[in-house]
Write a protein that binds this DNA or RNA. Structure first.
Length: 691
RNA sequence: GCGCCCGUAGCUCAGCUGGAUAGAGCGACUGACUACGAAUCAGUAGGUCGGGAGUUCGAAUCUCUCCGGGCGCACCA
């Protein structure tokens, strides 16, 4: 509602400026006044024009206000302050529009293309931790936002199943623990049996590997010089065996990484996060993606051989920004192919991204891997099934990868651009975010040894290699236990036969709501210093606060013996009468009667503010996507809930004596309920029936 | 050394393309449950927006510089 009106006003002002001053402004800046008493939309455009027109802002503003005349949806314009143009909405019309806008979404500008979002991408050699949760929740939420605006989105979770991290765990199993293949197989299989959430989440192979990985990493550092050398050799021999494939070591690695991957998918499913496709590095290697990419890289001159200097014998590419600055020497260039002929990570990534945009000329094989309630998640394979969905060939991609990887990401973009794929490079977004770290207090609480110099730091980086961090399932379990205790204390969900199941379900919904909101309330480039106190809080700006507002509204209708739908229908009937009356008696002061009176006056200002906030949804959604910032929507939902709670205390709906006003108040709550549920579902937060 | 990010109330963070008296939550203190359940609400205290300079009618927001903190800059993935 607000978005459409703003666009309309901007267009009207722009046309007027073109007509009056012969100036064509690309966009007219519009903002929200600090106080509702000043109006709902404001423009400081007169200040911008003052210089070019050599005229006082106030005079320009006055000329614009006079020239604007009537604009549909607005009740008037005025000049305020030193030259602001303040616009007042036609409140009754705005309320009627908002009430009837069941699914007011954006007219999706890019529905013709298809978007690919890559997120989660956890190395399959250990349990997921809180940093991975931030990644997955940000990515999943962004996917929901894109889909809500009409984009076709594929969700990919890239699996690096051939890297050193996997090799390290294999080394751990074989040489540190001397486990047989059968034993490893048994451990992996055990994990599958718990898949339905019946068993503990904390006894799986991912947890086992968490510790093993940390121990193996330590093992490499210990022993005599000769031992260290031997262990290092073991490590790289294992890695090479895994990369080549078709041998016993590679089979073991695949067994482990696949089992851990399943655990990750289960963990993420607890948060309502699903994937469409899991491209794996093993297939990128075996299907020779790199070889295909290399040809084009060489042909376009992006990749070239170095014959002298420290990179002699390597094939390299220029780093981003180097062409603008002074001559970059080959010593500073990015190595893509090592002197021993093997390709680096960035090289494989370039090939993979050519595939993402449909520019590689090769494809994966596909087979189903993980079953969701209503669809299948596919995985890459060398020889796949004949019938499979089509992935890749996207027109725009978003890579949810933490900020530490911005350099390698920039390299890939640089390569795409160098190969002449400008459109692809332009639609390649590194959706970066800062890490989740632990506060020193939290680390000590968890029993880790914290160095004295680290104790005074604001936060400490988590590390899988050191086994230092909070595991995702541990946090989720802790949250569920805390919400369950709260639910039991409040006797939520009744005392009937289904009480137990009901309470467990509600506790789960609240726990996930708390977690997702916690990860989404911070903007992307803010480091989250994790602390259980904050994460386990259910008061103030938290998921449960938002869910509680929803439950409160639902209770109003339950107690009142009606439904939100009925309230809105009743309201529409009244509003319809209002509109037709005022249309037929335009000259009379009909607006003083009926609904309009509930929208004016000091004591009703909060109600109008609530409707206005509810009507801002599409505007916020647009900003949220444009900035790739889910936090904007999270903040919007919180503010809506906060304003509702305020309204709830001030106006008691069910005891309202004026029947027409009661209908209006019920409709107000119904619109807030609709908007809250909508926003929460985009944040991946469920709206419980009771709390 | 080079690059990116951050520095706003005691703590954790918002602040949209520069705009009208700088906002939340937590914590502290005062109050409000026989009305739609208080996982709530109202109120009070608390800020030289890291320092300085510049651009501008106007700067938390843009530029430069300095200070402080974080993260990247491998023939590791």
């Amino acid at each position: 509602m607000v978005l459409e009106l703003q666009e309309k006003l901007g267009e009207a002002i722009r046309a007027l400026i073109l007509k009056n001053y012969a100036l064509d402004l690309p966009n007219v800046s519009l903002e929200t006044p600090p106080d509702l008493r000043l109006g709902e939309v404001a423009s400081p455009i007169a200040f911008e024009l003052a210089r070019r027109l050599r005229k006082a802002p106030k005079i320009i503003a006055q000329e614009i206000v006079t020239g604007l005349g009537a604009v549909e949806g607005f009740s008037g314009f005025e000049v305020a302050g030193a030259g602001y143009i303040n616009a007042r909405l036609d409140r009754l019309a705005a309320v009627c529009t908002t009430a009837s806008e069941e699914n007011a979404h954006l007219a999706a500008p890019g529905t013709e293309g298809h978007v690919l979002v890559e997120h989660t991408s956890i190395n399959p050699n250990k349990a997921a931790h809180i940093g991975h949760l931030r990644n997955a929740i940000l990515g999943d939420t962004f996917v929901r936002l894109l889909r809500a605006t009409g984009f076709k989105v594929d969700v990919q979770n890239y699996i690096d199943n051939t890297g050193v991290q996997v090799a390290d765990v294999v080394v751990g199993f074989l040489y540190l623990e001397s486990k047989s293949v059968a034993e490893i197989r048994a451990l992996a299989a055990d994990c599958g049996e718990r898949a339905e959430g019946t068993g503990s989440h904390t006894a799986g192979i991912d947890y086992y590997c968490w510790d093993l990985y940390a121990r193996t990493s330590q093992w490499y550092e210990q022993g005599t010089v000769e031992e260290k050398e031997a262990r290092k050799r073991l490590r790289y021999d294992t890695l090479h065996a895994i990369e080549s494939g078709g041998n016993e070591i590679a089979k073991i690695a695949d067994l482990i990484s696949t089992a851990v991957l399943r655990r990750h998918l289960e963990t993420m499913l607890r948060l309502g996060i699903e994937y469409d496709f899991l491209p794996r590095e093993s297939e990128i290697l075996h299907l020779k993606f790199w070889e295909a990419a290399r040809e084009e890289l060489e042909r376009s001159g992006v990749l070239y051989e170095v014959t002298q200097g420290k990179n002699a014998g390597c094939w390299v590419m220029k780093r981003p920004g180097s062409e603008a600055s002074a001559e970059e020497t080959d010593d500073e260039a990015k190595v893509i192919v090592r002197s021993n002929g093997t390709v680096t990570y960035v090289g494989k990534d370039i090939a993979y991204h050519l595939w993402k945009f449909g520019l590689l000329g090769r494809d994966f094989g596909y087979r189903p891997f993980f079953r969701y309630a209503d669809r299948e998640c596919w995985v890459s394979t060398e020889h796949g099934e004949a019938a499979h969905p089509h992935f890749g060939g996207a027109t725009a991609i978003y890579n949810v990868i933490d900020a530490r990887q911005s350099d390698p990401q920039a390299n890939v973009i640089q390569a795409l651009r160098g190969m002449g794929h400008a459109a692809a490079a332009d639609h390649y977004t590194h959706f970066s975010y800062e890490m989740v770290a632990l506060t020193p207090r939290c680390a000590i609480e968890l029993g880790y040894d914290v160095a004295p110099e680290d104790r005074t730091r604001p936060y400490i980086e988590v590390s899988g290699r050191k086994g230092f961090g909070v595991k995702a399932d541990d946090l989720i379990d802790k949250l569920i236990a805390a919400t369950r205790a709260e639910v039991d204390a409040r006797r939520t969900g009744g005392i009937g036969e289904n009480a137990e199941a009901e309470r467990q379900k509600i506790a789960h919904q609240i726990a996930i709501g708390a977690l997702r909101y916690f990860m989404l309330k911070y903007t992307r480039n803010s480091v989250i210093a994790f602390d259980f106190k904050d994460a386990l809080s259910f008061e103030g700006e938290t998921g449960p606060y938002l869910q509680y507002a929803v439950v409160r509204i639902r209770n109003i209708y339950r107690k009142g013996g009606t439904t939100p739908e009925a309230a809105l229908a009743e309201f529409a009937k009244q509003a319809g009468q209002q509109v037709s009356e005022s249309a037929s008696q335009r000259s009379t002061a009909a607006a003083r009667d009926g609904l309009s009176q509930y929208l004016s006056g000091e004591e009703n200002e909060d109600i109008w503010a609530l409707w206005l906030r509810a009507g801002r949804f599409s505007l916020v959604l647009e900003q949220s996507i444009a900035a790739s910032e889910p936090a904007f929507l999270a903040k919007h939902a919180f503010q809506l809930a906060q304003e509702f709670n305020n309204f709830y205390h001030k106006h008691h709906i069910l005891t309202e004596e004026d029947p027409q006003r009661k209908v209006f108040l019920l409709a107000t709550a119904a619109v807030v309920l609709r908007e809250l549920i909508k926003a929460l579902s985009l944040l991946g937060i469920e709206s419980p029936e009771a709390m």
